[in-house]
Every structure is written in C-alpha cells, then in structure tokens.
Design a binder for these strands. Structure first.
Lengths: 257, 257
DNA sequence: CAATAAACGATCAATAGCAATCAAATATGA
DNA sequence: TCATATTTGATTGCTATTGATCGTTTATTG
C-alpha cells in the first residue's frame, strides 16, 4: 500500500472521534510499525495531526491552521477541548457495566465515550448517527436506534412529536451532553434537541451529564431539565470551586476526570 | 492503445478512492512503465491529477465521491458490475415523482439511486445506513429511519420480530435489491434480510426490483417473495431473452437501463 | 513505587519506484 | 515511397520508501 492511500485511511479513521490508536492503524493499514510511525511523524510535521503516545489525534480546535476538511458545526466542535472531552468520555465509559444496556445522547463529548466501550458487550441505544458510526467497528457492541427523521444540523434521529419511537426500551443509565449548565439547569442550543432528550430522560433510571468545564460559563439555550433530574456530572478539572459546591448542594454527584 | 483511451482509464480508476497505484495502472493500461509515467506527468502538468510516489491522486478539494472504507463484503460488492448498477440506479431514480415519499431497501444496486435523487425533495424511508450516508449531503431530501438494532453484515437496521418499527408510514413505491432472482421468485442471501424486506413490501403500493443481470444466473438464497408480488424489474442489457420473456409472462414490467 | 508491557526512535539492508537516455515502432507529409 | 516527426518501449543508474532489528523511553498495573 502507498503513502497517499494510507494517509487517506488515517484521516478516515480519525474523523469520527478525533483519535486513532496505533493498534487500530496497524490493522487498518496493514503496514509495518515503522511505516505507521513514519506516516504519523510526517503528518504531525505538516501540522495535520498531533501525535500522542499510542496513536494520534486531530489538533485542538484552533481554527484555520491547516487544510482540514470540517464543514459542519459538529465537526468543528470535535476538536474543541478535545483532550478534556476524551478524559470525560473515558471516565463515563468506566461507569458502564459489561453487558448492560445504556443510552447515549448525541454530542461531541458523549462521542468520546465510544473508543472505551469496545469489549464491554454493551447494548447501546442512541439517537446520534455519529455515535453509530463510531460504534460500528466494535463487533461486540449492539447498536439500537429509535425511528424518526434525520435532523441534519446535529445528525441525530428525531421522532415526530408524540410518537412512540423506541418501543420497550429502558436503561439503567443515560449519558447526556449539553450546550450549557448552570444553577437554572441543563441547556441545549437547539429547542428540537430538548424534546429528544426529554424523551430519553424519561426512560433512564440514572442521568449522567458529560460536560467539559467551558459549559459552565456559557448561559445561552433552552432549558432541558433542572439539576434535580441529574444524578451525576462528569467534567474536567477546569470547573470553578463554587460551581462544584453548587452542584453538590443540589444533590448532584460530581466526577472530575 | 491510444493516449486518450489510457487517460480515460486512469480517471476511471482514480474516481472511486481518489488514488491509483502505479502497479494498478500497469495492469489496467497494459502499457510500459515509461508510457504510464509519461501519461501521469502530462496529466499533472495540466493540473488534472497530483503525482505521488507510487501512483497518483486527485487534486485536493476535488472531493466529489467521498473516500470509502474497503474491506467488508458490502464494499467489495460495490465495485461489482458498477457500470450496470449505476445505469439501473439512474433509471430507478427517474421513476420517483418530486416531493413524494419512497422506501429504499439496502443494497449496492439501490445505493446507486442516491446520486440521482438530489433536488427531487423526496421523503426517503430506508433501513440502510449506507443509503443514509449517501443521502446526508442532499439537504432537500428528508431521511426517515425505522427503529431497531444495527445488523453489521449488511449495515441495515433490523427491527425485533413483531415490533412496530416505523409507525404510520406508507409509500407509493419500494425500491428493493436482491441476491438473486429466478422463476421461483426473489431471493436474499441472508434470512434476516427476508424479514426486513417483507415488512417493507407490506407497506408499499408498488414494488420495484433493482437487479443487475448477473443476479439472474445466481440461484442460492432464501425466498423473499414470488414474482407476483413484484411490479417492475429494472436490470441491464445483459439479461437473457428467455428470462425477459418469463418475467413478462409473470406480469412483471421489465425496464432495461 | 517498582515491575511489566507497550510504544518509540534510530539504524540498515532490501525493495520498489523514478528520471533520463536511446532504440524501435508508428504515424504524417511531401 | 522516402524522410521526418511523434509516440512507445527498453536499459541504466539513482532515489525514496519500506520492513526488520535493535536499545531506550514511556504508560500502566499491581
């Protein structure tokens, strides 16, 4: 296989979550370790990726620093606070019990759970096509989808109002993202997301919110639910102490990844 | 072989993934290494391709057909009889009325309809994630999905038996693929596909079958339905005359793309 | 905090792709 | 028909890329 072809595959693997492991590449490229390392080194020197121990990731969301293909707002968000989101995703994945069924809401932070779910044999109900794509290579993970129409802005599946879209599903845990969180509760940028998430919340025993610390300083959006409906918040170390205290006062369990 | 003919073949090989290896060209063009290099040099000087060590690729930004991952049986099938499938897909798309709702079954032939559906403002119900991906860039096409579990072998959504997976949907036309077709009826390789397709058939006024002519000589599989349930068959000119006659005797309308 | 395993970088031989030159075949025009 | 121009094919070094094998560094786990 040739360098150009390998590069194409690397980016293809990199796009969904912003990260590829060295192991994945070994299988995907069918090339010797030395060659893979050389490819990664070259791509890093040209600024197109960032190497990390064990793989490579897309550069953190500084805009206009290279000829990367990212059109949708979603693709732009993937690289925002990528490191924090990866840590949060990993911590969230650690809460899943092998073999159980969980719900994962769409979002760039929840997306980062996916690489860590491999091998757990989970049953994942999600409304996000991005998450479907990320989970597709994991043979042991069962993917369930609700019915509905595809909403392109967020690449999620949206059921018509009042319609039963996921019959007979109930899960111990829902992992949810958000545009912002504050004392008023959890907020989303787009009102149509609110309806979708509310439906998920109603079907979960426990609601776990995944938000990087920048979401605590944003305030715009439509309210999804109050803090009383949230059981756990997973965030990064950038959270302000008073925010942490406020969450715990509201009875929310706080996990800092 | 003339230079023009070689150039045509080079682009043909280049289109699917955006890259051709020098080795591939050697087989494909049946020309001496020197000639191939000269062709590539010339095409690069005119800006139509970019040469890289070991082959050539399309210039950046010329991202007409997105890069696809090869390896699964599905991806291998895509290139089988591609020309015929494209023609069939185009003919099928021509049967769609602007603004109407249609159902499209998963398959490599039905997939070829997608490029021709842009601008029709259709409402497409499909169980195939491949078709979802193909339709995603078409802003005017509304995509509807049934609920269910993702079945990886074929990348389709499979509803649990007996469950209502697509409430309140009914379409004038179903476009369906098949593994084989003969006097006994329409066949699929995998029994799980049969259940999925049967459910679609029940919701359609008219069933249109898309099969390239090689499907007439295959005989293996599970029977999906008899010829009496098929209204129209679209195939390529490779169909044997006696087969064509048999279809028309069975009351099936035959379209040769 | 130490042990272990994985990932890393550097070096070197082998291979594959490359450019340049020249010879042969084919086309073109008087 | 002959001469000339253009295209194709073969040969020859040369360079780039690859894969294997080291020893070293870095995460991870108990």
């Amino acid at each position: 296989m040739h360098a150009a072809e390998r590069e194409r595959r690397i980016f293809e693997a990199l796009r969904p979550t912003g990260f590829v492991s060295y192991r994945d590449l070994e299988v995907l490229l069918d090339a010797s370790p030395a060659t893979i390392r050389r490819d990664l080194t070259r791509l890093e020197e040209s600024g197109q990726i960032v190497r990390v121990h064990g793989g490579a990731k897309l550069p953190e969301g500084d805009d206009a620093s290279g000829p990367r293909l990212m059109g949708t707002p979603f693709d732009q968000n993937i690289t925002q606070n990528l490191g924090a989101k990866q840590a949060i995703g990993k911590a969230a994945a650690a809460l899943c019990q092998p073999g159980e069924g969980v719900m994962i809401d769409g979002g760039t932070t929840t997306l980062q759970m996916c690489p860590h779910l491999d091998g757990l044999g989970l049953q994942v109900l999600t409304n996000s096509l991005h998450i479907v794509n990320a989970l597709l290579p994991q043979a042991g993970t069962r993917i369930l989808l609700p019915s509905g129409a595809v909403f392109r802005e967020q690449n999620i599946i949206l059921a018509p109002a009042g319609e039963e879209s996921m019959p007979r599903f109930h899960a111990p845990r829902l992992f949810m993202g958000a545009a912002a969180i504050g004392p008023q509760g959890v907020m989303q940028a787009d009102p149509v997301l609110v309806a979708a998430e509310r439906r998920l919340i109603d079907r979960a025993e426990e609601v776990i919110l995944l938000v990087d610390s920048s979401k605590f300083s944003t305030q715009s959006g439509t309210i999804v639910c109050g803090l009383d409906e949230i059981d756990t918040v997973i965030t990064d170390s950038g959270i302000a102490p008073d925010m942490a205290a406020a969450l715990q006062d509201a009875g929310v369990k706080l996990v800092v990844a």
